[in-house]
Design a protein around this nucleic acid. Structure first.
Length: 603
DNA sequence: GCCGTTTTCGGCCCGACTGTTTTCAGTCG
């Protein structure tokens, strides 16, 4: 069983436990363990065989879950899961896809009306039977019918960050036009720079929530208002995306932004930490004591204070204030995943994360010589306009026949063109840009590369990628990649796992071994900035950095527009807690060449 | 089900909104 299999089992157990009135903290324990395991780079199976560590050394795994992992690795199944599957009717999970129906209501509907599919639920609503059940009413019945089409649709894939960003920029620009809105910020997984985004979150500072919410309702992207209270409102917007708005006062803005940025796990840790300091943290502020009196809350907060907190208000205007109040420096939003960021912050070891402006070169792109849309000259011109100091032209090698991949003759011709281009660029002193002679070679199905070493040795930069035979077994794929890593002419492994977000799984590769080998040979690993790829992902990139591997963030641009995708790779690198010094293409070209020479000395 | 220098038992983050109640449970984030 792989880590992904065990993650799936624990998540499934948690889902099923929701129906059994189990202790919610027990459910949380399964979810938390699943999350931790899914973000481990080392497989549990190999940890069991090779390591001196035991499963209980893993945060959130105690004796019970440790034993269950043993059973899973040994037998491939878990008795608890089988018991639960037998006791929970299949089909209730479909019912929970209706907004507003959770495990409790789904269970009641099954027990009272024997409903276990969306179809039987729809019929029961049309016949008025749902409204007769205690705890349900006419409004709930109508709401279920209204949401039936949404629940039946399987178009609920999370948006790519790039697509979410398009919607976010539109709605931010629109909300900033509201005269009642003093500050408008996007939060949630968009602000954390996640690969994909489920819904969008907006936080607005204002003393006049009604006006702000009216403005929101009138946005031309709003298709339906899902709910609306005094300070909180949700709409469905473009591409069926839910957009949540919270309106808060000046004194609460930092806390609200922090809270709605998440992640949930980060917030739980932060609030626990606040309690340890005898403080309470919520979206309105940091308060002295667990429970205190209503009187000392600032008057400006009166709108929000009805249910609330009572203690002395200490902080909340900015995120910096909030973190400071609980004894921490501000933590960049991309790091807030509840992994190790709070410990790093505590110990003053937060890295200065890499920024787009640190990037000096782009080392993976295509031209019309293969499957690019723009010529060599156009790509170079676009790179100059983006103020890059160097680029590598890396068209496909000959194996990629669909892209008219280059054989040795055509490649050498292209390199001749690049030589002439560099000459003309440097005719009047220091060139605006240096163009490296590169190639994206293919790691062949049977092993080896699709161009010979005597050609590759003439290259400035070689990307090795795997495009064919992606369904080969783990050992075979891994050995193809290890062979390329040890090839002295290969500079970097391109999109090392091959996954396409929402479209194609990563091929099965032993990433721990790949990383260790890349560290040994000084071969770089790529963070491919294409928004469908983002490959390596944050977990792998962080593990690579820890192992001493240098990373390269590349656009893999197939057009001049594609060069703009660098920002996605930067976000991914920031999620991996990477600093500028971890990224090879933030170096001046002379330094990059030095790092590359170091690796040839290892041979 | 996990965790621990106040604890091996008794905690575990916190609040808005809705619909259904007649004071609150369920859902969601």
């Amino acid at each position: 069983m792989t880590n992904a299999d065990i993650t799936a089992v624990f998540d499934r157990v948690a889902d099923l436990l929701e129906f059994t009135e189990a202790n919610p903290f027990r459910i949380r324990a399964y979810r938390s363990a699943a999350r931790t395991i899914s973000s481990m780079i080392e497989s549990l199976a190999s940890l069991r065989e090779n390591s001196t560590r035991t499963f209980t050394d893993i945060e959130g795994i105690g004796t019970d879950l440790s034993h269950k992992i043993e059973v899973l690795l040994e037998t491939g199944s878990l008795p608890l899961l089988e018991e639960l599957e037998a006791s929970v009717p299949p089909g209730v999970f479909a019912i929970m896809r209706v907004p507003g129906l959770g495990p409790k209501k789904a269970k009641i509907l099954f027990e009272k009306l024997q409903i276990e599919s969306l179809e039987s639920l729809e019929n029961a609503c049309r016949e008025g039977r749902v409204a007769t059940v205690r705890g349900f009413g006419e409004k709930t019945q109508q709401s279920i019918l209204d949401n039936m089409a949404f629940a039946k649709s399987d178009q609920h894939q999370r948006l790519l960050w790039e697509d979410a960003d398009g919607i976010m920029q539109d709605v931010l620009a629109y909300m900033k036009k509201s005269f009642a809105a003093r500050t408008v910020e996007g939060a949630g997984s968009w602000r954390r720079g996640c690969e994909t985004v489920g819904d969008l979150d907006l936080v607005v500072e204002s003393d006049d929530p009604t006006t702000v919410m009216n403005h929101f309702a009138e946005w031309n992207g709003t298709t339906v208002v899902l709910l609306r209270g005094d300070t909180k409102m949700s709409i469905r917007g473009p591409r069926e995306t839910q957009i949540d708005l919270r309106v808060v006062t000046h004194d609460s803005f930092g806390c609200a932004l922090q809270y709605f940025t998440g992640s949930k796990e980060h917030n739980v840790l932060l609030r626990s930490r606040a309690r340890e300091h005898n403080l309470t943290l919520n979206e309105y502020g940091v308060f002295d004591g667990f429970q205190a009196s209503e009187t000392s809350v600032p008057e400006k907060m009166s709108v929000n204070v009805i249910h609330a907190e009572k203690g002395k208000w200490i902080a909340g205007r900015t995120e910096e204030d909030v973190y400071k109040a609980i004894g921490l420096p501000w933590i960049p939003s991309e790091m807030r995943e509840g992994r190790s960021e709070i410990t790093l912050a505590e110990e003053g070891r937060l890295p200065r994360l890499v920024e787009l402006s640190d990037v000096r070169g782009d080392l993976h792109m295509h031209t019309t010589a293969t499957d690019g849309e723009n010529t060599l000259e156009e790509m170079v011109q676009a790179a100059i306009e983006r103020k890059l100091e160097y680029i590598a032209i890396t068209d496909h090698g000959q194996r990629v026949t669909m892209a008219r991949g280059l054989n040795a003759k055509r490649l050498l011709n292209q390199w001749g063109e690049i030589d002439r281009l560099n000459d003309s660029l440097s005719k009047h002193g220091k060139p605006a840009i240096v163009v490296l002679k590169g190639i994206e070679v293919d790691m062949l199905e049977k092993g080896g590369l699709d161009l010979p070493d005597n050609v590759l040795e003439q290259a400035d930069w070689v990307v090795a990628s795997l495009h064919y035979g992606q369904s080969q077994p783990r050992e075979k794929i891994t050995s193809r990649i290890l062979e390329a890593i040890s090839n002295p002419h290969v500079s970097v492994i391109g999109h090392p796992t091959g996954r396409l977000i929402n479209r194609r799984q990563a091929y099965d590769v032993d990433m721990l071994t790949v990383i260790q080998s890349a560290a040994k040979y000084g071969t770089f690993l790529e963070i491919n900035a294409n928004p469908w790829r983002l490959d390596l992902n944050d977990i792998h990139a962080a593990a690579a950095q820890k192992a001493g591997v240098k990373l390269v963030i590349s656009t893999d641009a197939h057009s001049t527009q594609g060069l703009r995708q660098m920002r996605h790779g930067i976000l991914q690198a920031r999620r991996a807690s990477l600093a500028s010094e971890d990224i090879a293409n933030t170096r001046p070209l002379s330094e990059l060449r030095t790092i590359m020479k170091k690796r040839t000395r290892i041979q």
